[in-house]
Computed example of a mutant assay.
Amino acid sequence: MTWFESPAQTADLLTKAGYLADAATATTAFLAGALEKPLLLEGPAGVGKTELAKAVARATGAELVRLQCYEGLDEARALYEWNYKKQLLRIQSQAGTGEAADWSQTHDDIFTEEFLLTRPLLTAIRRDEPTVLLIDEVDKTDIEVEGLLLEVLSDFQVTIPELGTVAATRRPYVVLTSNASRELSEAVKRRCLYLHLDYPDAEREREILQAQVPDLDDRIAEQLVATVGRLRDLELKKAPSIAESVDWARTLIALEIRDLDEKAINDTLGAVLKHASDQARAVKELRLVSTGSTTK
């Protein structure tokens, strides 16, 4: 499958799928498909890393398979595991018939496809249909988990000791995302194309808002983008994401607010800042008058 024909076509298809990609993003997304190499997206939370993978799936009509990473993730949750309860039931049922079976026969009977529980990595490898594999927030896992990814990212295959090696018949389009909470291993990075995504500039964010919230007035869109930019310059616990900018815009429309003055900002700050300490800092730095009635 040819994922995209050119960087220009990539940008056009992503736009139609609801994702406004700049030249660097469109070019790298195109190359990830053309070279069949995983794409590592790194940057702060909320800049559109996960959404890019979803947009690629929408733009190409592929199925999205997502592995959400977290501390404590292991092989059984990422790759595969055996259905031990079902295996035990099979062993007990055979014992109940009175038929004698040696271990080799039992082993061959219970370690088959019938008893295999596939997880996202193996699922994506085995699919014949076009697939986008999203390995989300890989920096949240233990470093040992990266070892599980190396065989997949290098050869697009998985070795199951009881069944052998399962190789991909159709390579998935792989996207890894990282918020850079820790440094990823060089072994993983070598296997990937790399793209750093940051918060968009004011013009690009206005374009995103107008695409996502077409009813938003141009004047208030400019005010919102400028205010979000000021908030991101503060030392906040969680800077506003693009999605939260969109939520704020929709909040203003719902409340029929046509001017983002101090009162409007103060009354709706909870749509964009989700920590009390961040709201208090914003009130102080933006010189707002706190009313204690922010949107929750």
Rank of each mutant, 00 (worst) to 15 (best):
S290G: 12
T123K: 11
Q223M: 13
E262W: 05
Y194E: 12
K37T: 04
R206F: 06
G46E: 07
F30S: 08
T268L: 07
L117Q: 15
L35R: 15
W3V: 06
A32Q: 10
I91H: 06
K49V: 07
V166Y: 05
V65I: 11
G18S: 05
R66H: 08
P214A: 09
E51A: 13
D278E: 10
Y199M: 10
T97I: 03
V174E: 09
A226N: 13
A249H: 09
E285P: 02
T159P: 06
E146R: 08
R250K: 14
T169K: 15
M1A: 06
L153P: 06
L286M: 14
L234V: 01
T10H: 09
T159E: 08
L88Q: 13
V272H: 07
E75V: 03
K16Y: 06
K16L: 09
E51R: 13
E203V: 11
R230T: 01
F30H: 15
D215F: 00
R287P: 00
Y173N: 01
R190Q: 07
T25Y: 08
P130N: 10
L67C: 04
V138F: 03
Q92M: 12
R90S: 09
R171K: 15
S245K: 00
L149R: 02
L260K: 03
L122V: 06
W82I: 06
L116M: 05
E113R: 09
L252P: 08
T27R: 15
K54I: 07
T177Y: 05
F156W: 12
V65S: 03
T10E: 01
A187W: 04
R258Q: 12
V175R: 10
L20F: 01
G61E: 11
A168S: 15
D198A: 14
V158W: 09
A202T: 10
N179W: 00
A280T: 10
Y80H: 12
T141R: 08
A249P: 10
V289D: 12
L88W: 12
L176N: 00
E262T: 02
R127K: 15
E129D: 13
D259K: 14
A187V: 04
V158Y: 04
L234S: 06
Q210M: 07
G43H: 07
P240H: 04
L64Q: 07
H196W: 11
E205R: 09
D142Y: 11
S185N: 06
I91Q: 09
D155Y: 05
E144L: 08
D109C: 09
L260R: 05
T227E: 03
L117N: 13
E222H: 11
T227M: 05
G72P: 03
P200Y: 06
L236I: 12
L236F: 12
L234W: 03
Q68W: 02
P172S: 07
L73P: 04
T27F: 10
P7G: 02
G164F: 04
Q92G: 04
S293P: 05
